[in-house]
Amino acid sequence: MISLQGPQGHVDAGGLAERQPLPAHTIWIDLNDPSADEAAAVEAATGLRVPSRKALSEVENSSRLRRLRNGLSLSTPMITFDKVDSGLKPLGFVITRDHLVTVRFHELRAFAEVKKRIGEGDAACATSTEIFLLLMEELVDSLADALEEMGADLDALSTRIFDFDVKTGAGKFDPKVPRRRDVALRRILRSIGRRGKALGKIRSSLLGLERILPFVAGECETILGAELEPRFETIRRDIASLDEFEIRLSENVQFLLDATLGLINVEQNNTFRVLTVVSAVGVPPTLIASMYGMNFKAMPELDWAWGYPYALALILISALIPLAYFRVKGWF
């Protein structure tokens, strides 16, 4: 899908389908999951090469940051911000003096916000560089919001882990809470894993933007205009602060992971302890039962009228004594 933006907002892109020239005052050409025909139409109208998804997915730095004859070609992975299962998809920019071409393959709130700000006249957008900076600011803001939300989620997980119980604090059973502690711990472990995975993707997105900005800023004097350098520096400082915040969240994820694994070990130890108690309790009754199960003729208890109740009582007492001992020791 093609979307055109000028200094005053949206520009009709109908003529591009027939390979017509770009409408007047068009500065920003936004391609959202473009087809081959759409990419070819933009290339014919601008004379710029629209990078393919494969080209934007290259991981080497020389492919992500390239100097063109009349501009710059940039790419970075960007998180999809999907709460269920976030992923990374490539995001590309082609910047010249007259135009900014963006190529993306998923919806991004930052792009919608920049288009809204341009339409409302809420930001300086007379040049391609100014629109590029608006996009960088909104992308950084989106990543900051994602990290803040991640921090709140980790705080909630921390409460669940360190106040761990399968019942509510009031003692009433909550049907949403699993009855088995191991099931609850597995759910917590999966939650930590999802957040750790999302943090890794946010980190990749921040790293991509962190590489782009110095490269673009270095070209300001010859291509983009030196008066915009302070805005680049502000965005770079914002990214640096987000890097520090992300590192602290990653450390928190590792801490919560270690705590959860510790609880799982405690649960496993409890299981082995119960098995140990059962084994120890079962040994004396088994010994007595096996002794009275021997078929010797000279066993005096065989002639007792109360011999059978006596044997049963002895078996019961031999089981209760170890149970009482383990109970006193606090083993269960």
Rank of each mutant, 00 (worst) to 15 (best):
V140F: 03
G196M: 13
I188S: 06
S142M: 02
R117D: 05
L189R: 15
K197W: 14
R109V: 05
S142C: 02
T127F: 01
M150C: 07
G169M: 08
D182R: 11
I161A: 01
K197Q: 12
R195Q: 07
A144M: 07
R180L: 12
L139G: 00
T168D: 11
L133W: 12
F105P: 14
T129A: 06
D153H: 01
R104K: 15
D182G: 06
A126T: 15
L189V: 05
V103D: 09
E148A: 13
C125F: 13
L154R: 07
D163P: 06
D122Y: 10
V177H: 10
A124H: 13
E149W: 03
I188G: 02
E107K: 08
K197M: 07
V166T: 15
R180W: 07
E113F: 09
G121Y: 15
L154I: 14
I131N: 04
P178G: 02
P175K: 11
A123E: 12
L134F: 09
T129V: 08
R180M: 15
R195I: 13
T159W: 00
V101C: 11
G151I: 10
A198F: 03
S191M: 12
L185W: 07
T168I: 06
I118H: 04
E138A: 04
E113V: 13
R190W: 08
G151N: 04
F132A: 11
L135I: 15
G196I: 09
K115D: 10
V114S: 05
E148H: 07
D163A: 11
D145H: 09
H106W: 11
L108I: 04
P178A: 05
A198R: 13
R179W: 06
R186D: 09
R109C: 01
A144F: 08
A170V: 13
A184M: 14
E138Y: 06
I188L: 07
T127G: 02
T102N: 03
H106I: 14
L133G: 13
G196A: 03
F162G: 14
R160K: 01
K197G: 10
E138V: 01
D145L: 01
R109P: 00
D153N: 02
D141R: 04
T159I: 08
R117Q: 14
I118D: 04
R117E: 12
R181S: 08
L135A: 09
R186I: 04
A146S: 10
D145E: 03
V103A: 05
V114W: 01
